[in-house]
């Protein structure tokens, strides 16, 4: 891999970590509701997917704004665009994979609501 596109992947990993942490914090901050049809599991699920989409979008946007726009060499710009796209998709896929593992390993806690039982 060319050194010049590594930053696209580093950005992907960083955004993934931030979004995952935020997703965990928000899910835990959503309180258990009383009643036989509580909405809190749905809220946690919704926020999990919002942060998942944000991982995809932010990975791309951060790379685009802070790196891609400053590239002057057209051939390198194309390579970087491809790397950003791959990084965004991989970050998103990894986010879901890690989320799935965390959800299943959290027993019956709040994170278990990310995926329906």
């Amino acid at each position: 891999m060319h050194n010049s596109v590594i930053s696209a992947y580093i950005i992907g990993v960083a955004v993934l970590l931030v979004m995952m942490i935020l997703s965990i914090i928000v899910s835990n901050a959503i309180k258990y509701e009383p009643g036989s049809n509580p909405r809190d599991p749905q809220k946690r699920r919704t926020w999990f997917w919002i942060f998942g989409v944000a991982t995809l979008v932010f990975t791309f946007l951060v790379g685009y704004i802070f790196v891609y726009t400053s590239i002057r060499v057209p051939s390198f710009a194309t390579k970087y665009l491809i790397a950003m796209t791959i990084s965004s998709v991989v970050s998103f896929v990894l986010y879901i994979a890690i989320g799935f593992i965390l959800s299943k390993s959290s027993g019956h806690g709040k994170l278990s609501n990310w995926f329906r039982k």
């Binding site: 009643g35 599991p41 019956h108 806690g109 278990s112 039982k117």
Partner: peptide, 10 residues
């Protein structure tokens, strides 16, 4: 509500 909570939490 308890039964529902148990079910929702697996």
């Amino acid at each position: 509500s308890f039964l529902s909570r148990f079910e929702k939490q697996g």
